[in-house]
Simulated scan of single mutants.
Amino acid sequence: MVAGGNPPIPSFPDGVKVLHDCPDATVDVCFVHGLTGDRESTWTADGQSAPWPKTLLPSKLDKVRILTYGYDAYIVRKGVASSNRLIDHATNLLNDLTTDRVCCNAPFRPIVFVAHSLGGLVCKEAILLSRNHPEPHLRSIFDCIRGVIFMGTPHKGAWMADWAKISVSALGLAKTVNKSLLEILQTNNQALERIQLDFWSMIRERQKAGQPPEVTCFFEELPLPGIGKVVTKESATLEGYNSITIHANHRDMVKFASAEENGFKRLLGELVRWVLQVGKEN
C-alpha cells in the first residue's frame, strides 16, 4: 500500500516477454500488438487462458523462440493516457528487442515479426530506425529481419480516431487522449505517408537485390458490431505483395482458439515457409 491507503497503480506489461524458449532456436518470432491491446490479451481468444503463440505455435514450428512485445497503446483511458509518439514506441521496441537478443547470446539470429493494427506501424518505424542507426548493435535487427506479417495494419490510414470516440461515448468514462497516436491514424496523415514511402522503398531495394524481408498482409473480412471495418482491405494490403483474408473482425482476426481454424493455418503457412527458408541459409 502507498501513502493515503490507495493501492499502487499496476505497471503496464511493456517490453519483451518470452512465450516459448528454445535453447537451439534458429529463428525468433516476435509478436507486436495493436491499438488498445497488450502483449498477451491481444493474442488470447475468448475462453482461453493463454495466448495462442504460446499454446498452439510451438508444436508447429521447430527451433523457434517465440516472443511478444508490449507497449502502451491505449490512446484513450480512464486517468492518464500515454503521451508516447509512434517513434517513441518504435525506439523502445528496437532497444528492448536488441537487449533481449544480446542477453540471450543471439544478437544475429534471424527474426520475423507478426504485427497487428498499430503494431505494424511501430514495426515499420523500428525497422527503419534500425536500418539507419549509427550504433552497430541496433542495426542488427535490420540485418537479421527475414519477414513481416502485417495483420490489419492501416498502411494507408484508418478511421480509428472515430472508433476511439465511439468507445469513449459508449463507456461514458472521463478519459484522456493520446492525440499524437490518434493523428497518425487519420487518413492522409503526412507522417504515416512518410513511413509508408520509406519502408516500401527499402523493401523494393532489398527484393531487387534478392534479399529479405518477405512481406505478407492479412486483412479483416467482418465489421466490428456497431462500428464497421476498422481497417479496409485497401488500407491493409499492398499491391504486389501477398494478401490473405481472415474471416473475422479487426479485434478477433488475431485470436485463434484452435489450430484447426483456417486463419491460424493461413498464418502458420507463411511462418513455416519463412522458417524453412532460414534453414536453407544455414
Rank of each mutant, 00 (worst) to 15 (best):
L56S: 00
I145H: 00
D46L: 13
K265C: 12
A170W: 00
A45T: 08
S59V: 11
K78S: 14
G152T: 13
D14N: 11
P8E: 04
D72K: 09
E220K: 05
E281K: 08
A161T: 13
L224C: 12
H89A: 12
R85G: 14
G228H: 07
S180C: 10
L138K: 02
A236W: 03
R206F: 08
F150D: 01
M151R: 06
G119I: 04
P13D: 09
A25H: 14
W159L: 11
A115D: 11
V168S: 05
R146S: 10
L67G: 05
S11R: 03
W159I: 10
V102P: 01
L185K: 02
L67Q: 07
G263L: 11
D252V: 03
H247N: 15
S59R: 08
G119F: 09
W43Y: 04
K208F: 00
D88I: 11
V80H: 09
N262D: 15
S11Q: 08
F219S: 07
W274T: 07
A174T: 14
E281F: 01
F264G: 05
N262G: 13
E234P: 03
V215D: 07
V231C: 11
V76Q: 13
A90R: 02
D38A: 02
N84G: 10
T36S: 13
S117P: 11
R77A: 15
L19N: 05
L222V: 10
D72C: 12
V168P: 02
K165V: 04
P8S: 10
Q186G: 05
K175P: 03
P58F: 05
K63M: 13
Q196E: 13
E270H: 12
R85N: 14
K233R: 14
Q190R: 11
Q186S: 10
F256E: 11
M151V: 15
H33K: 06
I111N: 00
K229G: 06
M202Q: 07
